[in-house]
Design a protein around this nucleic acid. Structure first.
Length: 270
DNA sequence: CGCTGACCCTGACGGC
DNA sequence: TGCCGTCAGGGTCAGC
């Protein structure tokens, strides 16, 4: 269920359970993820103290002094805090057992996620070419404008390109384009500087408010059902094809761009 | 270098 | 009821 707000919500949820804790064991019940979980990962992690839980784009980094555990939740992954020894269910592929008696349980039906090792002082190849964080000052409309020159593919594909900016998934790309009044199919190189300023602003706004909503489910990381909070969010276009635009009433259209569904209002977005 | 499509998987859902 | 095609919020990679 992870877009950036869900990953950040996960990070905030698991962080207090991890900081200062020693890894007792990494139990890998099924190593067949996007890339196979390396045999060397469990031995490498055993006995290490987690010093920080960070996020880079949609990747989570569990830092220790000897290296970091790199986790991605893919499309269907989740991390929950459970009591050690709790019976694993279907698709509960990995447990990270901590010395507190709790463990982080990784659940991922589609197995598009990953558990990898990052050596100390190194940046994993998967992270090496990532663009700026959308909520950082390094990301703004000026950057979008500069990087988009000469690009003929749709602006929606452009803002979902992780080398441009990380963490803008399909839901929030659709929402941000609606809020900024830009048609998702417009060529990235044909969007004006002023509109890119607006778009960058909308991306920040929509992600920030989604993270705030995700925060309401933090307590559910121990026990509870762990439903992601963003369903509660007011979505303007995502999942609303055929329904009236909330701004003008025009029925929303749907179209596939880069193999992903795009929903937009032909009146409000140009 | 930019862009397109294939691919990695399971599960839910709609139509017949 | 069951079978089949389609789609799903991720991202990488080969090939043009």
């Amino acid at each position: 269920m992870p877009e950036l707000p869900e990953v950040e919500t996960t990070r905030r949820g698991v962080e207090p359970h991890c900081l200062g804790r020693t890894v007792k064991q990494l139990q890998v019940r099924d190593p067949r993820l996007r890339w196979p979980v390396p045999d060397t990962l469990a031995p490498a992690l055993a006995g290490l103290v987690i010093t920080a839980v960070e996020r880079r784009g949609k990747y989570l980094l569990f830092r220790t002094e000897k290296g970091s555990l790199l986790v991605h939740l893919g499309m269907s992954g989740s991390l929950r805090v459970v009591a050690a020894g709790a019976e694993p269910g279907r698709h509960d592929h990995i447990d990270l057992l901590l010395d507190s008696g709790l463990s982080l349980r990784y659940h991922d039906p589609r197995r598009f996620g990953c558990f990898l090792w990052q050596a100390p002082g190194e940046v994993h190849p998967l992270l090496a070419h990532l663009g700026p964080e959308p909520l950082s000052e390094a990301f703004d409309g000026e950057l979008l404008y500069r990087f988009s020159r000469g690009r003929r593919s749709p602006v929606k594909n452009f803002i979902m390109d992780g080398t441009v900016v990380v963490g803008v998934g399909n839901i929030y790309a659709n929402e941000a384009l609606f809020l900024s009044g830009i048609h998702p199919g417009r060529a990235a190189g044909r969007v004006s500087p002023a509109r890119y300023l607006r778009l960058a602003d909308c991306i920040k706004r929509v992600l920030t408010s989604a993270i705030e909503q995700g925060g309401t489910t933090l307590r559910d990381f121990v026990g509870g059902d762990g439903k992601p909070g963003y369903f509660a969010q007011q979505l303007y276009v995502y999942g609303r094809a055929g329904q009236p635009c909330k701004a003008c009433g025009t029925p929303l259209r749907e179209r596939r761009l880069g193999q992903r569904s795009s929903v937009y209002c032909v009146t409000c977005q140009r």
